[in-house]
Amino acid sequence: EPREEEAEKYIKRANGDYDKAQELAKKDGNEEIAEAIKEYKKR
């Protein structure tokens, strides 16, 4: 799923820090991806 791939990219950029990844996504205006990262975190 493209959303998950995007989320993974942010998580990698944030060195595995989900909260930081979420912030990066929000900064880029990717609210949807920020949500996907939140879902990811719950797994």
Rank of each mutant, 00 (worst) to 15 (best):
E1R: 14
E1N: 15
E1W: 14
E1S: 14
E1G: 14
E1A: 13
E1C: 15
P2M: 13
P2S: 15
P2H: 14
P2R: 15
P2T: 15
P2N: 15
R3G: 12
R3C: 12
R3A: 13
R3F: 15
E4V: 11
E4H: 14
E4N: 15
E4T: 11
E4W: 15
E5K: 14
E5Q: 12
E5H: 12
E5S: 14
E5D: 13
E5F: 11
E5G: 12
E5C: 14
E5T: 14
E6A: 11
E6F: 06
E6M: 12
E6R: 06
E6Q: 11
E6W: 10
E6G: 07
A7N: 03
A7M: 14
A7G: 03
A7L: 13
A7S: 05
A7R: 04
E8K: 14
E8F: 12
E8T: 06
E8H: 08
E8N: 07
E8P: 05
E8Y: 12
E8G: 05
K9A: 13
K9C: 15
K9S: 11
K9Y: 12
K9V: 08
K9W: 13
K9G: 11
K9P: 02
K9F: 08
K9T: 07
Y10E: 03
Y10M: 03
Y10G: 03
Y10L: 04
Y10P: 03
Y10D: 03
Y10R: 03
I11R: 02
I11Y: 02
I11V: 05
I11C: 03
I11S: 00
I11W: 02
I11K: 01
K12F: 07
K12A: 12
K12G: 05
K12S: 08
K12W: 07
K12R: 11
K12I: 07
K12V: 07
K12E: 13
K12M: 08
R13Y: 08
R13T: 08
R13P: 02
R13N: 09
R13D: 11
A14M: 03
N15M: 09
N15F: 10
N15I: 04
N15V: 04
N15W: 07
N15Q: 09
N15G: 12
N15P: 01
N15H: 11
G16H: 05
G16I: 01
G16K: 02
G16M: 05
G16Y: 10
D17G: 02
D17W: 03
D17N: 08
D17H: 03
D17C: 04
Y18P: 02
Y18Q: 02
Y18G: 01
Y18E: 01
Y18R: 02
Y18M: 07
Y18H: 04
Y18T: 03
Y18F: 11
D19C: 13
D19P: 02
D19S: 06
D19Y: 06
D19T: 08
D19W: 06
D19Q: 08
K20V: 12
K20E: 07
K20D: 04
K20A: 10
K20S: 05
K20W: 11
K20M: 12
K20C: 12
K20T: 06
A21K: 00
A21P: 01
A21Q: 00
A21D: 00
A21L: 00
A21W: 00
Q22P: 00
Q22W: 15
Q22N: 04
Q22M: 15
Q22K: 04
E23K: 06
E23Y: 06
E23T: 06
E23G: 05
E23P: 00
E23Q: 09
E23H: 06
L24C: 03
L24T: 04
L24R: 04
L24I: 05
L24F: 06
L24M: 13
L24W: 06
A25P: 00
A25S: 02
A25G: 01
A25C: 04
A25I: 01
A25F: 00
A25E: 00
A25H: 01
K26D: 04
K26E: 09
K26I: 14
K26N: 07
K26H: 09
K27S: 10
K27D: 09
K27A: 15
K27P: 01
K27V: 08
K27F: 10
K27Q: 13
K27E: 12
K27W: 08
K27M: 14
D28N: 04
D28M: 03
D28Y: 04
D28V: 02
G29Y: 03
G29P: 00
G29H: 05
G29I: 01
G29R: 04
G29S: 04
N30Y: 12
N30P: 01
N30D: 04
N30A: 09
N30G: 03
N30C: 07
E31N: 13
E31C: 12
E31A: 10
E32L: 12
E32R: 12
E32F: 08
E32S: 10
E32Q: 11
E32H: 14
E32P: 06
I33Q: 03
I33F: 02
I33C: 05
I33K: 02
I33T: 07
I33M: 07
A34L: 09
A34E: 05
A34P: 01
A34S: 06
A34Y: 07
A34N: 04
E35T: 08
E35Q: 10
E35I: 10
E35M: 10
A36T: 09
A36M: 15
A36R: 11
A36L: 15
A36V: 13
I37D: 02
I37G: 01
I37T: 00
K38R: 12
K38A: 11
K38P: 03
K38C: 05
K38F: 07
K38D: 07
K38T: 05
E39W: 06
E39P: 00
E39Q: 10
E39M: 07
E39T: 05
E39D: 09
Y40R: 12
Y40F: 10
K41C: 10
K41A: 11
K41S: 07
K41E: 08
K41F: 07
K41N: 04
K41G: 06
K42M: 09
K42L: 07
K42N: 09
K42V: 06
K42Y: 07
K42S: 09
K42Q: 11
K42G: 06
K42R: 11
R43V: 09
R43E: 09
R43M: 10
R43Q: 10
R43P: 04
